[in-house]
Nucleic acid binder design. Structure first.
Length: 196
DNA sequence: CTTACGATCATCT
DNA sequence: GATGATCGTAAGC
């Protein structure tokens, strides 16, 4: 109890993508935006691999968009989708091996005031329970693409000393291929998990 | 409560 | 020219 949070370093991310995804659950996503510090508990993630994963952006090989997935571990991969939304991923695996974990939902813990300002007129329970909602509430856009998330800068992740919890898994959301892989992981029973 | 659909644009074919 | 790793609203039960 009362342990000082420690930032997750390169070695944490330089591992198998599915393992990194599971291990990110319960960790703290920290966003520093000017004077504001926002923080939340990661409660839902998805793993995306490379050439053997048809749902992955990296499936067809490197392109300008997916370049971060092929780069070094522990960097932000942020892309724009559906004409409206940004999605935040954290890259995994060593350079040359594509992989990323999509952060789909978090439980707000700190900086609620700023999150509410960035996403007005929604209940706190709907502030960050989806990948596009989360980036909006944290003020994350493509300007943070490729940021090194192992440094205490604008965006990083720390561990926590919380007790263990049950992890549930399912097929990933919004994909048409690769449904057989159960690579969506979430904190069982947590009310901030997206509806999918 | 659940399901259906339109908005809107970067990216790739 | 088609397609989404989505969301909010509207309508149905």
């Amino acid at each position: 109890m009362g342990m000082k949070p420690h930032i997750l370093l390169r070695d944490f991310y330089a591992r198998d993508t599915v393992k990194v995804a599971k291990d990110l659950l319960g960790k703290r996503l920290v966003r520093v935006k000017g004077k504001n510090r926002m923080e939340g508990r990661i409660v839902e993630v998805e793993a995306y691999r490379g050439l053997e994963d048809p749902a992955s952006h990296a499936f067809r090989g490197p392109t300008p968009r997916n370049a971060p997935m092929f780069g070094g571990p522990g960097h932000a991969y942020i892309y724009f989708t559906y004409g409206n939304h940004y999605c935040l991923n954290i890259t995994t695996q060593e350079v040359g091996t594509p992989g990323a974990v999509l952060i789909r939902a978090m439980q707000p813990l700190e900086g609620l005031r700023e999150m509410r300002r960035l996403r007005p007129k929604v209940l706190d329970s709907n502030l960050t329970n989806g990948p596009g909602k989360l980036t909006k509430a944290l003020g994350i856009d493509k300007s943070l693409n490729e940021v090194d998330m192992t440094k205490r800068g604008e965006l990083f992740v720390t561990d926590s000393d919380e007790a263990t919890f049950d992890v549930a898994k399912s097929a990933r959301v919004g994909i048409s291929q690769g449904r057989d892989r159960l690579w969506r992981f979430y904190v069982a029973g947590n009310s901030y998990v997206s509806k999918g």
